[in-house]
């Protein structure tokens, strides 16, 4: 992966410090792992400012491994949701925002900060904190993204609706009432419908912004199962306020604090052998 190696150099901290024996250092401010898998995207020196001039992301660099689940954790206000929403240029809906640095899609090597936001959003899917199905039928919701991509053959749509709803573990519950309004479903079902809606267009990256924060524990467990199923098939970037959730569902985890990336590591390592003192403080609850 020569592209990866080049990108590694650009980060400037080729983290060959994967030696398992190494203990976290009191003085280490940041730590990055260079993962071994194929990359789907690489973020380099990303900075982001809101319209009122406040800087929410400060020089974040991290890779995104293909077909793996990467979790973003950190205290509220640390910029993790803001960071996630850079990936589909959601911020561009609001006035005066500014980016610097790059989010390169690989292997195409296109910086999505330079692309048309509309194209980016057709390629990168997103699921929000609160379920936001459209006030239409279940079927209409799943095909919402397909229709605007010019796909309208009934047979194709039917097939995609079924595969997407199966992927979202919703098919068996709704297959007999696809024409019912989506808003008549429970919150957990609505959220899985939103995941199906996003999966239906086969996004290159799927962004999940605290997808279970508005749900009860049973609905949360179903969504976590489904994310586990997606691992190995879809590249997922998920923001979660819940560390146990990150530990349960993700392959890689990033810890963010005050708009900066503190540590990026394999999930198991980050939770068992954090490399930075600040990560350890956070995951052990000694956060101050």
């Amino acid at each position: 992966m020569s592209a990866n190696e080049m990108a590694t150099n650009r980060i400037g901290q080729p983290a060959r410090m994967r030696a398992q024996s190494e203990r976290p250092s009191e003085t280490r401010e940041h730590w990055y792992l260079e993962p071994e898998g194929t990359l789907r995207a690489r973020v380099s020196n990303l900075k982001f400012w809101y319209g009122d001039g406040t800087q929410a992301i400060d020089d974040v660099s991290m890779p995104l491994v293909d077909k793996q689940v990467t979790a973003l954790i950190g205290p509220s206000g640390c910029g993790k949701s803001t960071f996630l929403r850079c990936f589909n240029r959601m911020h561009d809906l609001y006035q005066g925002v500014k980016y610097s640095g790059s989010i390169k899609l690989l292997p195409e090597d296109e910086n999505l900060i330079d692309l048309d936001p509309n194209i980016v959003r057709m390629r990168v899917g997103m699921v929000f904190q609160k379920p936001n199905p459209f006030p239409k039928s279940i079927y209409e919701n799943v095909i919402a993204g397909l229709k605007i991509r010019g796909i309208s053959k009934r047979g194709v749509l039917d097939e995609i609706v079924e595969t997407s709803l199966r992927q979202a573990a919703l098919w068996d519950e709704v297959k007999d009432r696809l024409d019912q309004p989506a808003l008549s479903m429970s919150g957990g079902q609505q959220q899985r419908l939103c995941i199906a809606r996003a999966l239906a267009v086969q996004p290159e990256i799927l962004l999940l912004d605290e997808p279970t924060s508005a749900l009860d524990p049973i609905a949360t467990a179903k969504i976590e199962d489904l994310i586990n199923q997606l691992s190995g098939k879809v590249t997922v970037l998920i923001v979660t306020h819940n560390m146990q959730q990150a530990a349960r569902i993700s392959n890689y985890t990033s810890y963010m604090y005050l708009g900066k990336l503190i540590e990026y590591n394999e999930t198991d390592s980050l939770f068992t052998r954090p490399m930075c003192q600040r990560t350890e403080d956070y995951i052990t609850g000694r956060f101050g």
Partner: peptide
């Protein structure tokens, strides 16, 4: 559906 979706020209739609 894989085939259908891979044939889409995002640039022209956009």
């Amino acid at each position: 559906s894989e085939n259908v979706l891979s044939g889409i020209d995002y640039a022209s739609i956009s």
